[in-house]
């Protein structure tokens, strides 16, 4: 009996410690790259303004991020009572920004100055052993435009 409990507590503690550290690190890198790629304009509009001689291509970025054991446990508890699952919010925020950044990086490599008609898709890759969330996938795609 204590073995189960010890394993659970160790998982919980390491989930918390490593999960928080990973989140902090990820946010730091997101901030840096967002600054670096700030020059590329992003818009969800379909109609381009008149820009002259341009060419475009489809660019996309996707990421799969998993939640740590601690947050999964908190979310499981929250599921009993209902309400906002704040533990998952940062997961989704990070995933979405990471996907957009990867899309922008691809656009930057193409030499584009802007990405248009951006769409975002979220899907959960769940049904792991406990039947609860394992991870989310976010896909961002749009049309990158560069001057010829």
């Amino acid at each position: 009996m204590p073995i189960d409990l010890i394993v659970f507590l160790v998982l919980l503690a390491s989930g918390y410690i490593f999960g928080q550290a990973a989140e902090k690190r990820h946010y730091k890198s997101i901030f840096e790259r967002e600054k670096a790629l700030h020059g590329i304009l992003c818009s969800s509009e379909r109609h381009l303004p008149e820009m002259g001689n341009v060419e475009g291509t489809l660019v996309s970025g996707s990421v799969v991020i998993s939640i740590d054991y601690f947050k999964r446990f908190v979310a499981g508890l929250r599921n009993l009572f209902g309400g906002r699952i704040s533990a998952y919010e940062s997961l989704l925020d990070r995933a979405r920004r990471e996907a957009i950044l990867r899309m922008k990086a691809e656009a930057g490599a193409y030499g584009a100055s802007s990405v248009w008609n951006i769409r975002l898709e979220t899907s959960s890759i769940y049904k792991n052993t406990q039947g609860s969330i394992g991870s989310v996938e976010v896909l961002a795609y749009g049309t990158a435009i560069k001057f010829r």
Partner: peptide
């Protein structure tokens, strides 16, 4: 403008709602 919604289920009984636009 150009607002779009996307919904996904993250865990059983929990839903993630997302809205974006320009």
């Amino acid at each position: 403008v150009n607002v779009r919604f996307s919904t996904s289920s993250i865990a059983a009984g929990a839903a993630e709602l997302f809205a974006y636009g320009t």
